[in-house]
């Protein structure tokens, strides 16, 4: 055991230098031109991009802008393009990049704010409003009475979809969305599916058709699976998009 301990300590002492290139641009400033700025820093054990960027910000360049809130992979703030792939920066460890070179870019398809910051919030709110991302029911709940019963498995299935953190990665990894900015993306489609399986919601398939039954919605998806393969919460996007497609197509055929 002593050996293993020593080994652990030894590992911590040999730090390599890594290079992080960050996209820099401030669309609100007349003087700003898009460019990449490269920073070299020494890597510490378990270093995440959150730790690395904070270090750059505090000690090398006070002007670089990026967003982190929870730094634990649960709030969805820190999505960015890391060596080409949209990912959560706080959940990405630097040691994963064997050549020690990391390129960071802001998430595409959202309004660019500055450097690595994009405006996901306004878009997600608009999306939530577009798909009416809340329970629709005529029933009035008396909150001092025992709650409505829900089958445990059904609750679990709803939860699986409710785990979405609105990080926007599914949109940034969807070429359909990259080409057509009006496409609502996997986040919107899986949100509809979430309510469609929730027993509290009384909406019918015809109602859902009104929300996403067009080429900006379910029929815009070309099954490129970028969403499914990059979603940091591993939502069952593939199956739930298919589920909505089946539902809405059969709705259309019936009516």
């Amino acid at each position: 055991m002593g050996d293993a301990l020593n080994q652990k300590e030894n590992q911590e002492q040999t730090f390599r230098t890594i290079e992080i290139s960050v996209f820099r641009y401030n669309p609100y400033s007349k003087h700003s031109k898009p460019r990449f700025e490269t920073y070299s820093l020494s890597e510490t054990p378990s270093m995440t991009l959150y730790i690395a960027l904070s270090k750059i910000w505090a000690t090398m360049d006070h002007h670089v802008s990026f967003d982190f809130v929870c730094r634990a992979g649960i709030c969805g703030s820190c999505a960015m393009v890391i060596n080409g792939k949209p990912r959560l920066a706080c959940k990405t460890r630097t040691e994963e990049f064997l050549d020690g070179k990391i390129t960071l870019m802001p998430l595409p398809t959202f309004k660019h704010i500055k450097d690595l910051q994009v405006d996901t919030g306004s878009w997600m709110n608009a999306m939530s409003q577009k798909v009416e991302s809340w329970i629709h029911t005529k029933e009035k709940t008396d909150i001092s009475k025992i709650e409505k019963r829900v089958e445990p498995d059904v609750a679990q299935a709803v939860f699986e979809l409710d785990r979405c953190i609105e990080c926007g990665i599914c949109l940034a990894s969807c070429s359909t969305r990259i080409m057509r900015e009006s496409f609502i993306g996997a986040v919107g489609l899986s949100r509809v599916a979430r309510f469609a399986i929730d027993p509290h919601d009384e909406r019918t398939d015809a109602d859902y058709y009104e929300l996403v039954g067009d080429d900006d919605g379910i029929f815009g998806c070309m099954s490129l699976m970028g969403c499914e393969d990059h979603c940091p919460k591993e939502l069952p996007l593939q199956t739930k998009i298919a589920y909505m497609r089946r539902k809405l197509v059969s709705q259309a055929i019936k009516s």
Partner: peptide
């Protein structure tokens, strides 16, 4: 163009 650039960045089989 947007598709091409995206595809080259993403390096994703299905795309």
């Amino acid at each position: 163009r947007r598709y091409q650039t995206h595809r080259h960045l993403l390096v994703h089989n299905d795309t």
